[in-house]
Amino acid sequence: MLNQAAAAATTDDAVRRMLLARVDDSFRLATFILRDPAAAEDAVQEAALLAWRKRRSLRDSQAVHGWFTRILVNVCRNELRHRSRQPRVVPLDPAIEPGGVQTGDRLDLGPAIRRLTSDEQALLALRFGQDLTVPEIAERLDVPEGTVKSRLHSTLQHLRAALEAERRSEEATR
């Protein structure tokens, strides 16, 4: 009984320390996926609380970082899915994303990225926003490296198609 209580306290402590130490990193990842700071803040809070509630289901306290990344990515994916059902907001300035992020991206990939599935958007954020390597993504998401590689490949293909669709759409509205 004492051992169980001590293990639970160790898990609680590890989860709490990790959540608080990685707030900046978590917020960056959520912003990369959602491209909206306010939504990212909500997502980090929701994921942290969800992780805290589920902390006793964590078998290996050493794996807490990857475990929380998966929870956060999932919360962000749900938000993207929810958002995809909302009316599309057309920004007045194409360099400003809905939600207020100033992209400053002259080539503006935002609209094309929004055409991808929520999984694909999350994968791009991990690879090119967080700048994680394929093995690091595989470890965080607990999937085989081959899966990450092939999904990255297909995601980039889909992004190319989305960029082309955006280009055609822009031409049609001129």
Partner: peptide, 16 residues
Amino acid sequence: IRLRNHYRSIDPTVAP
């Protein structure tokens, strides 16, 4: 490169 530039341009660096 375009993807990295895109995410760099929206990088908040720190949490609120």
